[in-house]
């Protein structure tokens, strides 16, 4: 567990100093919102109805940007060996990387939501619930995302391959997150099933990725 904390601290420290992944994914997410505004000229009502979908498209694609960076640093600097020699178990490496990705994605999301509210003049009340949903959705997305990012970084196409691998597998998270987010923004729908699905997905794929990660990290 100390290995987990050390690697997590290392990743967060690097990110705090450079702010590379965070600034890139934040700017990208804002751009997605701006492009939506241009391509689908929206009123506030429409933005409220379609907002959940917009937000998650922005989060998914900006999330892929930051996930792609997750193992790139180690690879570029030849530090994968270092990680492997360290006493940290593969599972701890996975959890540290996964938590770092969740924190990064969630930070971007918490910065983008207020901008979304301002851009489209939206009013909604269930703020606490929205934050919970963002966390659940992001955990699900990053669970497989972290695993596949470790795979994609070793291929010839790297950045291109991650979305192709990840998006079909995260279809359930994206559907459930969009539905629950729509509810948090005030839509009149039943979402008990989607909350359960999010929790089940999070548990299944954090566990499965944790278990198979040792096959991916070995050199």
């Amino acid at each position: 567990m100390s290995g987990l904390a050390t690697i997590l601290r290392k990743d967060l420290k690097i990110e705090l100093r450079t702010k590379e992944a965070l600034s890139a994914s934040f700017v990208f997410a804002v751009l997605v919102l701006v492009i939506f505004n241009f391509t689908l000229i929206l009123t506030s009502d429409e933005a409220l109805r379609l907002g959940a979908g917009f937000l998650w498209i922005a989060f998914a694609f900006s999330g892929i940007l930051s996930l792609n960076r997750s193992f790139a640093l180690e690879r570029e600097e030849g530090c994968t060996q270092g990680l492997l020699i360290s006493p940290a178990e593969p599972g701890s490496i996975y959890l540290a990387k996964f938590l770092a990705n969740v924190i990064l994605m969630l930070t971007t999301e918490l910065l983008v939501v207020p901008l979304f509210v301002v851009f489209f003049n939206i009013e909604f009340e269930r703020v606490g619930l929205l934050i919970l949903i963002l966390a659940l959705g992001t955990i699900g997305f990053s669970s497989v995302g972290t695993l596949f990012s470790a795979i994609a970084v070793h291929t010839r196409m790297r950045e291109v391959l991650l979305p192709l691998l990840l998006l079909p597998v995260t279809v359930p998270v994206l559907i459930a997150s969009v539905e629950t987010t729509a509810y948090a923004l005030g839509a009149d729908i039943t979402v008990a099933f989607w909350f359960r699905l999010l929790i089940v997905y999070d548990i299944v794929f954090v566990t499965a990725s944790y278990l198979v990660f040792e096959y991916v990290i070995q050199e």
Partner: peptide, 21 residues
């Protein structure tokens, strides 16, 4: 090794995808 991992994770996901859809 990598494609085996993807083959396993992908298939585990099939029932969840089906339920959600």
């Amino acid at each position: 090794t990598f494609s085996a991992v993807v083959g396993i994770i992908g298939f585990l996901n099939v029932p969840i995808v089906y339920m959600s859809i």
